[in-house]
């Protein structure tokens, strides 16, 4: 009898699954193997147009961390919109600096506010080192500064979170520009109250006095 590996079993189960609970369970089993060999299949699952299953696969990819990044970056060539959103979410959560270009692009161009929201958070949390990565850090900050003008409140919210986190961690020559932007978002020229509240909180944390 031929030896069948746990990976082969998990993939066969996934291929045989038809209902959402079956798909979720099979995807969970695949994630629990914690092997880079599961990555292509997990990325394929993101394109099934099934949020319950995709969120499990995304969590599995995030657990694999930087090992999953090269495949995730390439998988964006696909034209599947749904999977693109999950790929951005996974990359934002993994914090690998190789995702910078992709997150920057997603924040500027993606149609879905939830994707731009994830991308903004991702740009604030990349594992970059000051001062070695100053150029890249500055690119992240400038992208976030543009995003505070986004039409969608949740993207502006995420950008405020990102700018606050960035300035608390790193020195920046653009600090004054950021403070100016936050001040505007905390004023009555900003129509959404929760944005004014969050910008005010960020200013308090950045300028304790």
């Amino acid at each position: 009898m031929k030896n069948v590996s746990p990976l082969e079993v998990a993939i066969a189960d996934l291929q045989a699954a038809t209902t959402t609970p079956e798909l979720v369970r099979a995807t969970k089993n695949l994630c629990n193997l914690r092997t880079i060999e599961a990555i292509p299949k997990l990325i394929e699952v993101l394109g099934f147009n099934n949020p319950a299953v995709a969120s499990v696969a995304t969590a599995g990819l995030i657990d694999l961390g930087s090992q999953a990044v090269p495949s995730l970056l390439v998988s964006l060539d696909e034209k599947n919109y749904g999977s693109r959103a999950w790929v951005v979410r996974a990359l934002a959560a993994i914090h690998d600096p190789r995702s910078l270009d992709l997150l920057d692009y997603a924040l500027t161009t993606d149609i879905a506010p939830s994707v731009r929201r994830s991308a903004a958070r991702g740009l604030a949390e990349l594992n970059l080192i000051y001062p070695e990565d100053s150029l890249k850090l500055n690119r992240c900050l400038l992208a976030l500064l543009t995003a505070i003008k986004d039409d969608e409140w949740i993207v502006r919210y995420s950008a405020i979170f990102g700018i606050e986190m960035h300035l608390l961690k790193y020195n920046s020559k653009n600090k004054n520009l950021c403070i100016l932007g936050l001040k505007q978002l905390s004023s009555n020229s900003e129509p959404i109250k929760v944005i004014r509240l969050r910008a005010t909180l960020a200013l308090q944390r950045l300028n304790p006095s």
Partner: peptide, 9 residues
């Protein structure tokens, strides 16, 4: 509540 929102972004 804002901290809770930050955690969900």
């Amino acid at each position: 509540v804002l901290d809770a929102m930050d955690a969900l972004l």
